[in-house]
Write a protein that binds this DNA or RNA. Sequence first.
DNA 1: GATATTCCGTTGCATACGCAACATTTTGGA
DNA 2: TCCAAAATGTTGCGTATGCAACGGAATATC
Lengths: 218, 218
Amino acid sequence: MKSYETVLLSVPLFQGIAPEELGPLLACLGVKQKTVPRDGMALAAGGKVDSIGIVLEGRFLIVREDAKGNRSLLSTLGPGDFFGEALCCAGVEESPVSVVADTDGEVLQLDFQRILHTCSNACSFHTKLLENMLAVLAGKNLSMQRRMELLSEKSIRVRLIRYLESAAQQHGREFSIPMNREELADFLGADRSALSRELSRLKAEGRIDYWKNHFKLL
Amino acid sequence: MKSYETVLLSVPLFQGIAPEELGPLLACLGVKQKTVPRDGMALAAGGKVDSIGIVLEGRFLIVREDAKGNRSLLSTLGPGDFFGEALCCAGVEESPVSVVADTDGEVLQLDFQRILHTCSNACSFHTKLLENMLAVLAGKNLSMQRRMELLSEKSIRVRLIRYLESAAQQHGREFSIPMNREELADFLGADRSALSRELSRLKAEGRIDYWKNHFKLL
DNA sequence: GATATTCCGTTGCATACGCAACATTTTGGA
DNA sequence: TCCAAAATGTTGCGTATGCAACGGAATATC
């Protein structure tokens, strides 16, 4: 069985855990590694979620299935990504989503109760783990918060400018973004072509310049 | 100094804590009660947030101030509501928001480090507190998630139907919602009059019936 | 290097919806 | 009971934008 140590050390949940502490921590948590064949379920909708899953290998899809059986893709997961943390922290009884394997894959399952309750030998990294857990959830909160503020603007133009400005605030007047047009359009809640149109206008007005995913504010 | 026990017991953070445990818990956390006069700051933008604030009395506003000094209202807080939890859990260095008093008010401040690190006498409710903290953050995550799925629909009509259907799924075909028109429009990312128009259409089509904030799906 | 495929920009068209303005109903206060 | 204020409904207008379709550029595959 591969160790996947490199993957695990990159997981935000384990941030600040020294490599040599990782083994003992995992042992203390009683993790289970699971092989999931393509199209298999790493987490099934409808049931209670009592563990957090970490993707070690392969590609997984988070999928919502409505009453009529229409599947809609919520997001995709790769090695180092994890899932189920919000559901089990919130104590949701029936998971509204499934996680299905898009390729053959491996996941690591961490029992939530054992994360929560410090083990008898009070390992020091346990506190760190909880702290990380909080940071992960809170970080997602904040980024969703920001996105919702964006989406609450009425016009594509304003949403776009807001987005670019906040990116510029972080990286300076010239920067690259981690999305292509389609993804950016999706992020801004707009149509791709409409987004392109708006970008063109801003360029024509001399307010911005761009090439592919590289932008400059003027 | 009033005790505000009733308020505190209703705070999700203290869910599952017995009334008689509350006092010792607060003592163990070393909470500080603070009086904030109208227009005073319970939390100032730009600084690090190292405590969670619980509103005991009064009305507070969460406000974002952009570079040009435009204040935009993000939400309002009343007794039992709390703030700053996401920011301090995420370890944000500069708070992007302020919390200002809309009336004279009282807040209780809980030092985050003392929430995180179990106290020396290992009080049992400390674990419960952490569990609640996780549940609160995760719960917000899930509700924001749902809202973003809503907002990602393109038309008001679809967003509205989705919203009503999910409400019906929880409470049956007939139910009341906790928002007035303006608030619902805001929640759905739409204009109030446009929302009214769409509601009228749905009623004319015989798909729904409604009166004020009471709805029936047909 | 040729071909297929993905990515991005452009444009015409139809319309959903924001906006403003006004009508109607409901609520609360004196 | 009457009045003012708030909440909700209605409607006309202009336009932003979704949609579809297409062309060109960039990238990948062989």
